[in-house]
């Protein structure tokens, strides 16, 4: 199951807060696809990598596999 989240209406750091909380509720190995915009295109993947998750970015979509 891939889970989706849209944080395009939010500003930093709430973009990562919402992403972090969504990740907390996934099982390890599950994927979260986050639609991002603005500075979150940079900051959300960076925060996700710092938290130890596997991250792939495709344009405005950040795919995070929960560690």
């Amino acid at each position: 199951m891939v889970h989706t989240l849209d944080v395009t209406a939010l500003r930093c750091p709430l973009t990562w807060v919402k992403t972090k909380l969504a990740l907390e509720r996934l099982q390890p190995g599950e994927t979260l696809e986050v639609a991002v915009s603005g500075e979150a295109v940079e900051s959300v993947p960076r925060s996700a990598r710092e938290a130890g998750h596997a991250v792939a970015v495709e344009g405005s979509l950040v795919r995070i596999v929960r560690r």
């Binding site: 199951m1 989240l5 990562w16 919402k18 509720r25 996934l26 994927t31």
Partner: peptide, 27 residues
Amino acid sequence: EKPKEPARAPLLNDAELDRYSRQLLLP
């Protein structure tokens, strides 16, 4: 393609997420 569904909404409301965001940022 794997099925997709929206991530479950947090139990904290938006006002709480905003108010407590700086502590929620701690890993």
